[in-house]
Amino acid sequence: MEVDKGGGTEFGFFTSRLDKMIGWARKFSVFQYPFITACCGMEYMSVACAHYDIDRFGAGLPRFSPRQADVLFVVGTISQKIAPVLLTVYEQMCSPKWVVAFGVCTCTGGFYDDYATVRGIDHVLPVDIYIPGCPPRPETVLNGLIMLQEKIQNQKQEV
C-alpha cells in the first residue's frame, strides 16, 4: 500500500484516519510471547485462565515463537545469566513490537538487589508498560494490558 507518510496537507486527514484504523485492529489482536521465569508466572497462569480470562481483551493466544508475537511479556526476575537470552528473543521479534514488564523484579529489580539479578529489564531492552506488584494481582495485569492497548491505538503506526 502506498501512503504518504510525510503527512502532506492533502493526505493528512487520510493518514491519521488510517493510523486509527490500524491501531484499532492491532490493539485487539495482541499475540504475546510470555517470557516466564519466576513467581509472577503463577499470576500469569491465573490471568490466562478462566477466572480472569485475558482473552476478553483479545490477548488470549500466547505464541511461543518470537517471530509470531507482537508483545513480549517479561514475567519474573531476570538474572544476569538469562539477560542475553531475553535480548536474543527480543531481537528476533518482528516490528512493530512492544514490551511489558510484568512484576516489580522486571521493573526495578525489586528487593533482589544483588550480584545475580538485573536491576530492571530496561537495562537490557526498551519497555512500554510497567506493571508493578510482587506479583501483581490479575486485575493489575488487565489494567496494564488496557493501558498498552491505548498506547497501541494512539501511536503512529508503521505499516
Partner: peptide, 27 residues
C-alpha cells in the same frame, strides 16, 4: 548456578551482596 564469566565466589563473606558484574552479551 552462575555463568562461567562470573569472577569470584559470592557466598564468601568478603563478596558484597550488591557487587554486580558486567552483563554478558548474547553468545
Amino acid at each position: 548456578l552462575l555463568y562461567p564469566e562470573f569472577q569470584g565466589h559470592p557466598l564468601r563473606k568478603d563478596y558484597p551482596v550488591t557487587k554486580r558484574q558486567p552483563l554478558v552479551g548474547p553468545k
